[in-house]
């Protein structure tokens, strides 16, 4: 094989390796970006990227996020803490399992807390970005501060469902205690 062909083959393999790594790196970020941009808003201030969505009980028509659990009720909140911290609160007062988890823009689950860890206390979190909060921001007393590794991401509340038909009257108000509100 001539020197030129060797050089061509090496260049092809180098480009292939770089593309391979780039695709593997980009896939979770692209998928998360799509999820963040398509999460419907039902609550939140106009023009804000902070929003809470209470999807219906999962069934086979849910095809937005892979492997949905049919045994959980969800509430989701898209966040952007690049300018202001986000206060996350929940007080479902349920005896069964519930949790609140936060996901970074690369899909990492960087924080989770469940009902047992809270021991009956309401959830009160302050999600802050890597940048310092702007001057004049009043931090709510008692709130637990969580640093997000990315400015944008998703907060997901899970509420365990036994029989939705019989528990609906209890579960729906409980999950709607979930709040995501940017600090003023």
């Amino acid at each position: 094989m001539t020197r030129r062909r060797w050089q061509g083959t090496l260049a092809l393999l180098a480009i292939a390796a770089g593309t391979h790594l780039l695709v593997v790196w980009a896939i979770p970020r692209l998928i998360m970006r799509k999820v963040l941009s398509t999460t419907p808003a039902q609550l939140g201030s106009p023009g804000s990227t902070e929003r809470v969505y209470f999807p219906p009980m999962t069934d086979a028509t849910q095809r937005r996020i892979v492997m949905p659990s049919p045994d959980l009720l969800y509430a989701t909140c898209v966040f952007d803490v690049s300018r202001r911290p986000l206060r996350i609160q929940a007080d479902p007062r349920l005896s069964g399992y519930w949790s609140v988890a936060a996901y970074a823009a690369n899909s990492d689950n960087f924080f989770v807390v469940n009902d047992r860890q809270l021991a009956g206390q309401p959830l009160d979190l302050l999600l802050v970005g890597m940048q310092r909060a702007p001057a004049g921001t009043v931090m709510p007393p008692g709130a637990r501060v969580v640093v997000a590794p990315s400015d944008k991401g998703l907060v997901l509340m899970r509420v365990l469902v036994g029989d939705y038909a019989t528990e609906k009257a209890m579960l729906e108000p409980a999950r709607r205690t979930f709040r995501c509100e940017p600090l003023p």
Binding site: W25, P28, M32, V66, M67, A101, Y103, N106, S107, V112
Partner: peptide, 14 residues
């Protein structure tokens, strides 16, 4: 692992 989870199990917990 991160890419595989994003494709087949997005928003998994630790």
């Amino acid at each position: 692992t991160r890419a595989r989870v994003a494709v087949g199990g997005l928003l998994a917990l630790s």
